[in-house]
Design a protein around this nucleic acid. Sequence first.
RNA 1: GCCGCAUUCGUCUAGAGGCCCAGGACACCGCCCUCUCAAGGCGGAGAUCACCGGUUCGAAUCCGGUAUGCGGUACCA
Length: 501
Amino acid sequence: MSAQRSTSSDERPIRVRMAPSPTGPLHIGTARTSLYNYLFARATGGTYVLRIEDTDLARSTPEFENDILDNLHWLGITWDEGPQTAGGEDIGLFGPYRQSLRMDRYAREAARLLQSGAAYHCWCTPEELDAVRRVQEANREAPRYNGRCLRLTDADRAAFEAEGRRPALRFRVAPETIRFDDLIRGEVEFDNALLGDFVIVRADGVPLYHFVVVVDDEQMEISHVVRGEDHLSNTPKHIALIRALGYREPVFGHIPLILNPDRSKMSKRKSQTAISDYRAEGYLPEAMVNFLAFLGWSPGTEEEIFSLDELAARFEIGAVHKAGAVFDRDRLDHLNGVYIRSLTDADLALRLRPLLSEAISDATLAGLVPLLRERMVRLTDAVELSGFLAESDDVVAAWWSVAELLPTGRDGAEVAGALGVARDALMACGEWSAEVLEAAARAAADALGWKAGDFFRPLRLAVTGKAVSPPLFGSMVLLGRERTLARLDAALERLRAGAPA
RNA sequence: GCCGCAUUCGUCUAGAGGCCCAGGACACCGCCCUCUCAAGGCGGAGAUCACCGGUUCGAAUCCGGUAUGCGGUACCA
């Protein structure tokens, strides 16, 4: 069973890596792959390497690189080698850790391959390759390179050269069966005869992914390559390249994909995929990590709340699932709520501070936090919940209508009367505390023969502007005596104007 | 098309031959609590373990096959 599979590779020191491409913000899938690598490294005492895969200069940007590193840090994922900040200095003995700075190394290895005959120049144009592919498809053959440039004479080559054509470098794939023992999937077997020779360096000199990944993993002494399942089918290419270059073969582990609700690979098109977006919406990194870890792994028990440290202690790469998992927003929301509720008042206030209006003082925030905690799914929910404190009396008054103020079965005159009684009762309170205010309000409701819920409704609307609010009397305390009474007075006036007795 | 991988409640999962006429969680429904909304408590509904065949006294668990889904098949990563 895969759970028992050895994770050692020739007793090499364990070194794993994450290799994000700064062509977009940190993606959910990249974050999860990074997390699994991190957990694996910590569980095994291995070294974790960050490598920036920016060979695609046209699409790579410093902004995306910054987004990726920043959000990785936000999640609490740390690494031992590679740049710690975007554009920052490398740490570690195997640098540079940025592919754009490693071009000389790729060129050297490409030259070796060319010299040994394992790779050859290919002068075919994209149009020619397309035409060949179309014919193959029409004949229901596997679309693979037909090897034309393998049979070129020196004269042919000279002719292409004279034409101004630049050759790509193509790797010669031997027709053999490639087998490997995947950490997660077990024995996997591919027939490389089906592959066809593939390009490793473009005509413009830019080396391609399958080639550079193999070179870098060797030079950085990566012992375990843990990556997304979408690379499973690419692995035989990598192994063929590794053998041709005389490298050591790492252990491979392919983790299942995170899926859209329709079970296709999670994509920006169908789902929210940028970690930064979840962060901006008020998800906690603790919840995100816990959630991501359980998309494809479980400790085998019914426990489900795990900190990053606890995950590191329990994580087993062999227990990772084989099937993909749908990203379930409801579940993330639930977990986020659990984590928010577990925060101390001080911690929650700290996290809320940057989201809330300056009009809410630190002292008010401290009082507000206990009222909000159980009502939040995301941190940003606090903005709406605290709006009555942040906005002016006039703005808050505009949130409600007289009709909303009326409990069912009560008319404007009745409510105006009750509201007046309530206002007077609250005004008479010697102490402006939630307990005292509530007692006074209840007594007034009783005296009038009103149900507390009905009696409180117009108060809630007048004070907070909403039918749904944090606990009423706590809200009044935070608002303060003066502003509370002013809002009640204003509401009374509106009621009387709207419903003359 | 070809190659590969996968398949337990809607979703995330537990499950390694009898403990499973399948357990937990989210979501959903109901009740309780209750100043609204939440949170919390209790309960409910929800999976013939994709299907078919085999092995076995006994299969979600082992072995075939089929179906479906997904991934790969680029001078993208």
